[in-house]
Design a protein around this nucleic acid. Structure first.
Lengths: 192, 192
DNA sequence: TATTCCTTTCAGAGATTATTGAAAGAAACA
DNA sequence: TGTTTCTTTCAATAATCTCTGAAAGGAATA
């Protein structure tokens, strides 16, 4: 139901800036899919990332052409993840949102969340699975004996790997952008 | 259509080893979901990871209770990813599969693939998006001028971050498990 | 060559996830 | 207090992704 009277907002052609942003948003959304994050959530995140000023729910609805419910749900998820923040503009009842634009902070947030949700459960499971076969270890004459050994070893390796990886990423995050060059240099030396 | 005659294989109760493996497989599958990998594919991968001997399509079908088509498709995907290999046993027409069990190799493979599929496209898009607004830069009197500046800066930061991150991960992968301790030590010093 | 055994493919069915829109809820305002 | 404005929730619907099973395709064997 578009108002066509002369005084109404006539949708102007998208500027190159708008086109560019739209393209980035679209791609960021696609990538979200690969990362187990729903496309719309990632698009909203991108929209906020490229916005120089706070954005309200209606802006999100209009720009991405999605329903109020959808916008509301995904904005909440982004807040829960800690990737965006709610803010209130004086003299305006609406809620606005802004993205934390420091990419390293962003990364830290994502790493912390994903680690908690994805790495920790698998580590717990590995420990539990090892314990299960530890109990049967005593009966050494078991036909499974060798199998058990190999199995335990593989679980161990995976466990160690996940631990190490976690440590490295944690440190990386703490170091932030400044140390990256130094670190890269050090690592390169190590490779040689 | 289970044969119930005395000579048929009567399904015995699962041993603790089998139970333990089943649990690991289940959890690995769940995690796959978070990583944009379908559950079954991740489960097959886990099944092969904890198997001491090669496994054929029928084994996969039986253990995970899935159809031939499903097994075939997901096994192929895993081969495409480079996470498992096809092998042929002498005197047997069937194809068997084995998992590359070195966790660092596994990690390297995954990193390489995900980088190609997920990081590179977004980097390309960022470059393209920057180029789009570079063109309009000359008309400095544009109302968008400031907006363009901020936008370009954010894209730049993201670009730099993705580059740096890629470099670090590459190096990590090359270093492998041995250097992890040293590296961790060095990083810890840097933090202080 | 025909037969057997195994693998792949893919249309349709099924399951899961995402989205809508309207109703209920909440908070500021008058 | 009632009214207005904005937000959240959720059942129904739509879109997407996954799985099945049967048919077609291939390769080794007789």
């Amino acid at each position: 139901m578009v108002d066509k009277t002369p005084t109404a907002d006539i949708p102007s052609l998208p500027t190159p800036l708008e086109q560019s942003k739209a393209q980035f948003i679209r791609r960021w959304g696609e990538m979200g899919g690969y990362w187990g994050i729903n496309r719309t959530m990632a698009e909203i995140h991108a929209l906020l990332f490229v916005s120089t000023e706070p954005i309200c729910t209606d802006d999100v609805m209009a720009k991405l052409m999605i329903s109020r419910g959808n916008a509301s749900m995904n904005l909440r998820s982004l807040v829960d993840w800690g990737l965006i923040e709610r803010i209130h503009l004086r003299g305006d009842r609406k809620e606005y949102f802004v993205c934390r634009t420091d990419v390293w902070e962003m990364f830290e947030t994502i790493v912390r969340q994903r680690r908690r949700r994805e790495v920790e459960p698998i580590v717990e499971t590995i420990e539990h699975c090892k314990a299960m076969v530890d109990d049967i270890q005593p009966k050494a004459a078991d036909a499974d004996a060798e199998d058990v050994q190999v199995y335990k070893q593989r679980l161990d390796e995976m466990h160690k790997f996940l631990d190490s990886f976690g440590t490295i990423v944690d440190l990386m995050v703490k170091l932030g952008p400044g140390s990256l060059q130094r670190l890269s240099g050090m690592m390169t030396k190590l490779v040689k």
